[in-house]
Design a protein around this nucleic acid. Structure first.
Length: 278
DNA sequence: ATGGTTGCGAAGCAA
């Protein structure tokens, strides 16, 4: 690992490695642990947000993360949902859930300050179907997230909201909008609820870096969806303007969807040049 | 053709 120094390799000004923040719905951390270890070693993110750890806090493998140089905060209470943040740049002021009745969906939000950045790992409810009570709860959860940001953060500061939003922001974020008419993830109300979250002061940096190009972060396990290109971009890194302005790269690691026992989601990675103090 | 796959936990549900 390189040390931050006053002088770079070429003798010129120090070349600071960007701050790397990633998010990954691992669809069971237990099942995915070898892939997560491999991915951390390969990409060396400073912060990794995880969703669907599918385990209670007491079994979360924090010692393993510590051995890899990461402090962790986990919020999970059983075999479903579960979110975490792993950070090698510090991890303080942990908050688990909204701290209110709206959190009844359970273990879908954890926040922590990592270095200068207030980081949130979120797992938005799936919604199941448009006529389901779970869809109503999904809309309410997104509205609660917006209020949570209003109450706990400053949009002028360095804030990142990362995770599986279970909403494709735009028709360009799904392989075939016609096939998905009447389905969750693309409906007008949930897209509006996501826009309300972004309107707090957040930029979808992967989209900002890739114009209108088709980019997906999730592909169904069934029917060879990945190889057919049948995906959706539902995993997002949303950052405040002060971070977006310093963003030097933002991408989705499709390679992680390949190989042995992949998650059905790919990691989303954002690289930020120089982070000002919060 | 209402299929297909994975994870959880040990039958069916959730995604």
């Amino acid at each position: 690992m390189t040390q931050d120094g006053d002088v770079g390799d070429d003798g010129g000004p120090a070349a600071h490695r960007p701050l790397v923040i990633a998010t990954w719905n691992v669809n069971s951390l237990r099942a995915r642990l070898p892939r997560v270890e491999q991915w951390l070693a390969e990409h060396q993110p400073d912060v990794l947000c995880l969703q669907e750890t599918k385990q209670p806090d007491r079994t979360f493998p924090s010692p393993l993360f510590e051995s890899l140089g990461y402090d962790t905060a986990h919020h999970g209470d059983g075999q479903w949902n579960g979110v975490a943040i792993a950070s090698r740049i510090g991890l303080v002021d942990v908050r688990r859930g909204f701290g209110s009745a709206e959190d009844a969906e359970g273990c879908r939000l954890v926040a922590a300050t990592c270095g200068a950045v207030r980081v949130h790992s979120v797992y938005v409810p799936n919604g199941r179907s448009l006529d389901s009570e779970h869809y109503v709860a999904k809309l309410a959860w997104l509205a609660r997230l917006r209020r949570f940001l209003d109450e706990t953060c400053d949009p002028a500061g360095p804030v990142a909201v990362c995770g599986d939003f279970n909403v494709a922001p735009h028709d360009r974020d799904v392989w075939d909008p016609a096939q998905l008419e009447g389905c969750t993830h693309v409906s007008v109300p949930e897209r509006a609820a996501l826009e309300e979250v972004e309107a707090w002061g957040l930029v979808d940096v992967v989209r900002a870096f890739h114009g209108a190009e088709a980019l997906y972060s999730w592909w169904d396990y069934r029917g060879g969806a990945f190889h057919r290109g049948h995906g959706m971009r539902i995993d997002l890194v949303l950052v405040t303007r002060v971070l977006a302005e310093r963003c030097v790269a933002a991408w989705i690691d499709r390679e992680a969807r390949k190989g042995v026992k992949p998650s059905d989601h790919a990691p989303v990675v954002v690289e930020i040049g120089e982070v000002p103090p919060g």
